[in-house]
Simulated scan of single mutants.
Amino acid sequence: MTKLSVNINKIATLRNSRGGDTPNVVQFAKDVQRFGAEGITVHPRPDERHIKYQDTRDLKPEVYTEFNVEGNPIKSFMDLVLEVKPTQVTLVPDAVDALTSNAGWDTMKHVSFLTEVISEFKSNGIRTSIFVDPVLKMIEGAKTTGTDRIELYTESFAQEYSLGNKNAIIPFTKAAELANEIDLGVNAGHDLSLENIKFFKENVPELLEVSIGHALVSESLYLGVENVVQMYLHKLK
């Protein structure tokens, strides 16, 4: 069964829009774990416009499933990860002003940098994953960095699937097949939803984890958080 990691950035966005501490991101993380989620994901950015660095620290003792911290490995981010020591760190090449993640790493161009960063995290017992597009040479490049896993950037699949183009899954299937062949674990995330997750799971072999935030929180407004978590778990079986 593919693990469901709930990205709680949107809960922090809602909280920050009014100041104060409502909704409380730590309580939300505790609740979705109680409802069955098998992981919590956060993506603190340098401007802390949603998840704050302190949120990441506060969450650490409360996440008893898997804790996944995403971000661009600038010094402040690396220091935070090495302090918190989550289960997994997912490296994402975000620009400082990026609205949301919008591209995977060029693992060929940045191989030396990624290798150094990954070595530091792994020496501290933190599982590593690299955010990549479903491009075979980028997956081959990821292997040379020493990473444990890749996270497939799934926005292109989600957009095309919503238009009825099921062939959009093909690059992701091939990417996962290659990753499996070269002993890289496969995660996935970005714009996955209740509409497309079952089809994606069925066509991506050995999918270990999906990270879902925006869609899950949006769907929960209509269907309820506990119900939505259970619906994802059912579709991922």
Rank of each mutant, 00 (worst) to 15 (best):
P44G: 06
F35C: 01
A12N: 01
V229G: 04
P93N: 13
I139E: 02
L236G: 12
V111H: 14
R45Y: 05
N24P: 10
T173K: 07
E38R: 11
F199M: 07
G39F: 01
V6I: 10
S17R: 03
Y53E: 02
H234G: 15
K52W: 08
G164H: 09
V186E: 03
V204K: 03
D47S: 09
F200Q: 05
A179K: 04
G104T: 14
A98M: 09
G213F: 01
L163C: 12
P73D: 05
N102F: 14
V25W: 04
A215E: 11
L136Y: 03
D94G: 03
V25E: 02
V32Q: 01
T100Y: 15
R15N: 10
W105V: 02
G213W: 01
I169E: 00
T144V: 07
K166A: 15
E116F: 11
V186H: 02
D21F: 10
R149Q: 10
P205Q: 13
G71L: 00
E62N: 13
F113Q: 05
T56P: 04
F200M: 05
S218N: 12
P134V: 00
F121E: 14
G20Y: 07
K166R: 12
E206I: 13
H110K: 15
K75S: 14
L236Q: 13
S193R: 10
K235H: 11
V204Q: 00
L163D: 11
T87N: 06
T107K: 01
R18P: 06
M108A: 09
T65P: 04
E83H: 03
E181Q: 14
I139P: 01
S193C: 13
P205E: 09
N124Q: 15
S119I: 13
V217R: 00
L114N: 01
E195S: 12
G19R: 11
T173G: 11
L223T: 14
K237W: 14
K122P: 07
A188S: 11
I150M: 04
F199W: 07
N7F: 02
P86E: 03
V92N: 00
G39M: 02
L216Q: 07
H214V: 08
P46I: 05
R57Y: 12
G146Q: 05
L163G: 12
D47N: 15
I169Q: 00
G19M: 10
V186L: 11
P44M: 08
